[in-house]
Nucleic acid binder design. Structure first.
Lengths: 140, 140
DNA sequence: ACTATTGTACTAGTGTACTAATACAATAAC
DNA sequence: GTTATTGTATTAGTACACTAGTACAATAGT
């Protein structure tokens, strides 16, 4: 099996976070069904050429979020009860935190509501529009 | 003089960033006028009981942003040409980066435009007084 | 019971951001 | 030119996040 998941150590994004997101997306999209077994910690670690602890870290967080259930000797499985919803919720939570932090930051800097809205509109166009590139690069 | 600026080492926000923001805000709001002199690196360091390098770090970044001008032996001064605008722009840039990163994150996670908008609306309500003047959505 | 397979705990190494300690170099003032 | 005042450079210490190395413990299968 050609490794369900992939990671890139050079992207700057922590490996365990990459794994978490991939699992959550797979579950949220139905690629992984409730009850389905995940690769074992050691197997996945071997496949991706990373340390078992890194995989374990990801699985631990996934279990905390109720997306998977794991036990020693058996392995890890997608949760039965509403794993799909949990995964989707967990995903949006990540985004929600980022958005929340950004707004808080903007407010602490002293921006008004309308200014923040404007910044957001620009960012939205920048990332969700077909004419998305050819934009200026601002900060460092 | 009771120290123009204040810092709190326990806040988690790096000291030099706290200084940068305060200077930018002071300039943007007109509390500090173009040409006005800032505390010397060592004086401010002494007042705030921090290391001169930390102040220097802040001043260096402020000069890079064109908010202040500094030279050895003379000291640091608020820039003459449009420092106010530069400071305001630099401030919004910080917020802009945060907002941009949040939207990018949301997109990478797989959220749709409308979902991101919803998250943003919630965050906005959360941090800005719920009253405000109704809701004015320019675009759909 | 035995053994292989599974996840887990503990420890250490690595990189990075931030701040400090200290000495240095450039300018101004006289 | 001498001296004090200014910013700057170099180095080190600290804290934290991330990952790896290694050994351990629990379960399943026989």
């Amino acid at each position: 099996m050609p490794a369900i998941f992939t990671v890139d150590p050079h992207t700057g994004v922590p490996i365990y976070l990459q794994l978490i997101e991939q699992v959550k997306r797979s579950v949220a999209l139905g690629v992984l069904s409730p009850g389905e077994r995940l690769p074992t910690v050691k197997q996945l670690a071997t496949d991706l050429t990373i340390n078992p602890n890194t995989v374990a870290r990801a699985y631990r967080d996934l279990e905390r979020d109720g997306v998977i259930e794991t036990s020693v000797g058996r392995g890890s499985f997608v949760s039965q009860n509403g794993a799909k919803d949990r995964a989707a919720a967990a995903l949006t939570d990540v985004a929600s935190s980022a958005v929340d932090a950004a707004v808080r930051e903007a407010k602490s800097i002293g921006l008004r509501r309308s200014q923040v809205r404007e910044l957001f509109s620009q960012a939205l166009e920048r990332w969700y529009s077909p004419d998305g590139d050819a934009k200026e690069h601002k900060n460092s």
